[in-house]
Nucleic acid binder design. Structure first.
Length: 678
DNA sequence: ATGAGCTAGCTTTTT
DNA sequence: GCTAGCTCAT
């Protein structure tokens, strides 16, 4: 009975994690130990063997990608039985769903809009202006991060406990108060609100709480080490009745403390839940023994961790390679030469990754790859839905969908230009404030009352007429959301504006809009598309073709590659100076975990490198090898010493810095580059 | 209402 | 050294 197909593929620890369904369980899942397999098998097991209804299982992840991955894997196992897994999603999407059902209890309408950082920032700036707070003294960014911190602590304005040591907090608190009120007025939520309101509703309303704590017989949580206070509270409330909560995570991969994640949730799980069963997944299915040894050795330098020993049945494989370069450019050259000479023929470029600490580090490699014609893709960077042109499109759609959406109104009313400047906007704002109406409504009234300058009046009324027309297109003519956006782009003159400026950037923008239009096809209607957009950051990366992957180590979590390059291991850069300055020893440990994440992405070969000199923020700086390099176990490392200079053996190693110029100019990539020039 | 000119800041960023 | 964001002048 229990030996169903999906159980046969599991090792004993994994199986134990799957079949122990009842009571609190903490699965300590080392890198590459098959935690997603455990989670998905567990869902299958609950439905198939325990006869649990899919909608009684709450499965939470942090990213859309992870949720999608889980869903598709479960679907593969269960086929049609997986239908009805309605509560599988990210913290934010599940909270949004819950909140839409009970919006009234939080003082919202169920059609509230979820706003992003940009909108938040604009709101804060507006508030600072009207409250006469100099935004040079306290940046909106800082204000928002403080508010976010408070929300992560579960504090509404009234509940904030000011940190007396922080001189800014007492200035920020009144802003928070106004901000929070403004959000309700506008019928919008920021990301923090989704969870904060949800917790609040569950706490304050017994009837609503009962619905969910009865319904969620089983709760599964992915990446538990990344939860913050309010998220864990939310889980604790929901698990309070059945206590069948299974959290999976790896304390060694906790790299988001700066986003409010508290490993404490993970480390103290068994203190919160009596009789917690702790299961360790220590068998690694990803990396070679050598790679694993290096990673394990490094992470063992951390004090603050549960502690585990990863094993593998895999071969020792190649030693982890450690290279020193003269400068950043040489590093890029050396690395690309290695790819050309020995990697490219044996591995798919899709299985090669360069993982960096900070995103700007990718530039050096990009330049090199462009020069020698190696294809690459950058993962991360500016998010698709954060691009200006995409936000403009969404702004139009949002305003059409919801008249009250002042933030959308502000964004697009003068874009493309309709001669609506600051003066007009000020008038609209004042009117809307005085009469408590939306900006849209206020504009109407101002035109009716003939209060505007002629030029502005023409621009504004044509804009309003278009909006009215588009709304009719949507609600009366029942035009679908894709066609609607095309009409908008056409009639508003937005497309024209982009087409008229003929440069690469605008061509890119048009491309992006095309991509947006095609992404919209996945959704049935405008409403579901807008919900998706507000909770999504990127549309699926193109995995077409063979390309080297460039990304930050943060972005690489959860991924794996045959070949991994880890350049830039220099003091100041990695571990990053700021991290040490702000968080001291704790910061250092998090950086070390980041190194651990980086190394454990590699399946076959890992290359670590640093350079003696780097052009950084406009200056050449001498750099020294990262302290992490000294922590690497010599036994599993191959130092590429080209030099005969052995004098300083004790004070670490010396690398030959005298690369001959010809060496690099004769590289395969260079030759190809020369050929292309002809 | 657009652009020149200046200043500040410069880590990561699952949602 | 680069660039985003702001101010001030046109």
């Amino acid at each position: 009975m229990i030996n169903s197909d999906y159980l046969k593929k599991l090792n004993s620890a994994q199986k134990e994690a799957v079949i122990n369904t009842d009571g609190p369980i903490l699965v300590v899942a080392g890198a590459g130990s098959g935690k997603t397999r455990v989670l998905t098998s567990k869902i299958a097991h609950l439905i198939k063997n325990k006869k649990v209804f899919p909608n009684q299982i709450l499965s939470v992840t942090f990213t859309n990608k992870a949720a999608k991955e889980m869903h598709s894997r479960v679907s593969l196992m269960l086929k049609s039985e997986a239908v009805g897994l309605t509560w599988l999603g990210t913290f934010h999407s599940i909270c949004a769903k819950l909140l839409r059902k009970h919006a009234k209890a939080a003082g919202l309408n169920s059609n509230f809009t979820i706003i992003d950082y940009d909108d938040q920032s604009r709101l804060i700036k507006n508030i600072c202006k009207s409250e006469n707070i100099d935004s040079k003294k306290i940046s909106p960014k800082f204000i928002l991060s403080t508010i976010d911190k408070w929300k992560n602590n579960g504090w509404y304005p009234k509940e904030v406990k000011i940190n007396r040591k922080d001189i800014f907090e007492k200035i920020i608190l009144p802003i928070y108060e106004v901000y929070q009120k403004k959000l309700l007025d506008l019928n919008v939520c920021d990301f923090g609100d989704l969870i904060l309101h949800s917790v609040n509703i569950l706490e304050k309303n017994k009837d609503i709480r009962e619905i969910y704590i009865n319904n969620f017989k089983y709760i599964l949580v992915d990446e538990y080490q990344d939860t913050n206070f309010i998220q864990s509270k939310w889980l604790n409330i929901l698990a309070s009745k059945h206590k069948n909560i299974c959290c999976v995570g790896d304390d060694d991969q906790s790299i988001y403390s700066w986003r409010g994640a508290e490993i404490k949730n993970f480390l103290d799980f068994d203190k919160i839940y009596e009789n917690t069963k702790i299961i360790r997944l220590e068998e690694n299915y990803r990396s070679t023994q050598n790679i694993l040894s290096v990673a394990s050795n490094l992470i063992s330098k951390n004090e603050n961790r549960v502690g585990k020993t990863l094993r593998t049945n895999s071969i020792d494989g190649e030693l982890v390679k450690l290279n020193c370069y003269r400068n950043g450019k040489d590093e890029a050259i050396g690395l690309s030469d290695e790819i050309e000479k020995s990697i490219k023929t044996r591995y798919s470029l899709n299985n090669v990754a360069i993982l960096v600490r900070a995103i700007f580090q990718t530039r050096e490699f990009e330049e090199r790859f462009l020069k020698i014609g190696l294809p690459y893709r950058i993962i991360g960077g500016t998010k698709f839905y954060e691009r200006a042109e995409i936000k403009d499109c969404i702004g139009y759609l949002r305003l059409i969908y919801q008249e009250k959406d002042d933030l959308a109104f502000e964004r697009i009313v003068n874009n493309p230009k309709r001669s609506i400047g600051d003066t007009t906007m000020k008038q609209i704002h004042e009117y809307s404030k005085k009469n408590s109406t939306s900006l849209y409504e206020a504009s109407h009234k101002l035109i009716e009352n003939n209060k505007l300058k002629p030029k502005a009046k023409i621009g504004l009324s044509s804009f309003l007429n278009f909006v009215k027309k588009w709304r009719a297109d949507l609600s009366i003519k029942k035009i679908n959301h894709i066609k609607l956006l095309q009409i908008i782009l056409d009639e508003s003159g937005y497309s024209m504006m982009l087409k008229n400026k003929k440069d690469l950037e605008n061509e890119n923008r048009l491309e992006n809009i095309k991509e947006l239009l095609s992404a919209m096809k996945e959704f049935d209607n405008l409403e579901s598309f807008l919900e998706h957009v507000s909770l999504a950051t990127s549309i699926d990366q193109d995995w077409d073709g063979q390309k080297i992957n460039l990304m930050t180590m943060h972005a690489s979590k959860g991924l794996e590659f045959d070949i991994v390059f880890l350049p830039g291991w220099e003091e100041g850069l990695f571990p990053h100076q700021k991290s040490l300055e702000e968080k001291g020893e704790k910061g250092l440990e998090e950086e070390r975990r980041l190194a651990y994440v980086g190394i454990t992405r590699a399946k076959k070969i890992a290359y670590i490198s640093f350079s003696m000199n780097r052009f950084y923020q406009g200056d050449w700086i001498d750099s020294i090898a990262s302290r992490f390099i000294e922590e690497l176990p010599e036994k599993f490392i191959e130092k590429n010493i080209v030099s005969e200079d052995n004098e300083n053996q004790d004070s670490d190693f010396e690398f030959n810095q005298d690369f001959e110029i010809e060496e690099s100019t004769r590289s395969p990539g260079w030759i190809r580059y020369q050929k292309r020039l002809k």
